[in-house]
Design a protein around this nucleic acid. Sequence first.
DNA 1: TTGTATGCGTTATCAG
DNA 2: CTGATAACGCATACAA
Lengths: 343, 343
Amino acid sequence: MNGGEKEITIYDIADKLHISAATVSRALQDHPRVSKKTKKLVIKTAGDMGYRSNSFASNLRKKSSNIIGLIVPRLNSNFMADVIAGIEKVLNNNNYNLIISQSLETMQKEINNANAMLVNRVDGLLVSLAYDTTNVDHFEPFIKRNIPVIFFDRVFDHDGCPQIYIDNYKAAYEITSHLIKQGCKRIVHITASQLRKVYAERYAGYQKALEDNNIKLDTNLVIINDLSSEAGITAAHQLLKMSPLPDGVFSANDNCAISCMQTLKKAGIRIPADIAFAGFNNDPSSCVVEPNLTTVNYKGYEMGEVAAKLMIDNLINKDEFHPAHSLVLRSELIVRESSLRVI
Amino acid sequence: MNGGEKEITIYDIADKLHISAATVSRALQDHPRVSKKTKKLVIKTAGDMGYRSNSFASNLRKKSSNIIGLIVPRLNSNFMADVIAGIEKVLNNNNYNLIISQSLETMQKEINNANAMLVNRVDGLLVSLAYDTTNVDHFEPFIKRNIPVIFFDRVFDHDGCPQIYIDNYKAAYEITSHLIKQGCKRIVHITASQLRKVYAERYAGYQKALEDNNIKLDTNLVIINDLSSEAGITAAHQLLKMSPLPDGVFSANDNCAISCMQTLKKAGIRIPADIAFAGFNNDPSSCVVEPNLTTVNYKGYEMGEVAAKLMIDNLINKDEFHPAHSLVLRSELIVRESSLRVI
DNA sequence: TTGTATGCGTTATCAG
DNA sequence: CTGATAACGCATACAA
């Protein structure tokens, strides 16, 4: 019972104009070997008759959908919203559409989503992995079929899958070094699942900075959680129980840093005098919180654009040989009051 | 050149098992009139052969895509990210997929997006309108074809299109009354395009609250912009030039309220003593800013869930008669320090 | 420049 | 319970 009247097809247009369906099809595609006059007539008639091209039939014939799939851990984060906005803009400008789903940080749902994308016959897949994803076998069916799979942010090493990310190691090294320069000696690091390279590398950068400054790594100062606001509050309570009190915190995201900082402030801790703080992401809230949060600027929008552009390039030059080149985007340390000690 | 080997079809499975393609098709759909044994065998063989159902062909036959379209003004806002997360969850649980696009607040792009959705043959469309959309003719092709169009948040009155929103008039009335009770007499209202009912009704609620408290509306105190952070800064400078200085601000979103508040604070204005503040949305930043911002809690996630559920209901009972009922969701005033004056 | 004919892979109808 | 067959609407190879 879909729609009162029957849908118009190219045959209906052909009948009306006493030409063949093939010509109508060609005219609608702006095929070079159709006279200007017929094209104009066909397009006008199509409009008048309320024709809409049937993408099912067209896709079936062409074996491509012009749809790109996107699988992310969560849709509702500032960072991811920016990424998606960037992706959508680029795809839309290139006449591709975007179909999205979230894994909610579980590998099982990520697998289900991947299968749905496979059945929906996306022309390419953009992926940022869930916390607990241990392998990427669920993307093999795409790779086997030469459907490009591009990882961004939460990436995975796989031959044939380009990756887009920032130099997390370097950024973490810089931010930790900065804290040390501000006089911090007992720096807590709050991070998430070490299965994800982003977090493992931030941790590694933190370690290296300590080492280069002759500070021994104290694993009691490393807290692994899910970097949520709630986790930040819990972490704050953990910190308060440490003795001596840490004098610095480097959280792997702003969200967690902010709630942790606020909880500590309520407990009477002075930021940055007692404990200096640094986050990661440059969330809007990072320059709302007082004192403003030192962080790493890490533009989601740009990452989305770059990922989508790389996808488009891959699809356009599908026949040519493509080394799976990866892209490392720039990030920058933004020093704000939360880590600045007046000396 | 898509994929090295040929894609497996139900015919290949049929050949291998020496049964008909029809039986394979039925088995894969778990059709009741297929023996358990055949079903099991077919499903196993399909898996072994690396079969994936061809949704193009299937959709072509069934004339439905199981895809829902979503058009929003911007993807990267806290509110919208929550909405989308809610929508995706519900759709995914019901085996529908989500295809999204953003109008970037322009009607022209909204029209283009709508056309793309039409060609992509979405089974239903969820829409939140751009600032400058003056009519909804571009959704007529859907309505004509009985494809459900549901408006949420930035809605439009149209017979046959359900709407989901909150009572903006009431919320604005409450928040303005609250400011008045705190002693505010010259309350600035910052809002956006009055083409959008959400903003027009908030403005109306503001006016009504003034009126009920015998405060004369002063249109010089009403600022219309795009509610961005930048607009908040500009608004702050406008406020500073007003004399006498206003003693309250009700901004139609938190984002703008926060940047305005921060700018005023830097200029030496005390919040709430000199100027009391209230926003709208309950953005995460609203409880990070100091003083914490009084606002209206307005859960995007729930709105997304409700919209998606209504869509699913519509699609499942497509044959039955459906009055285009609308839904008004609950919202609540959250009073925080930004508007609390110690008396 | 246009027309003819065919197949893309399913699902649904009908018959057994 | 299973099989044969006919659409679904379009794009393209081939013919004219």
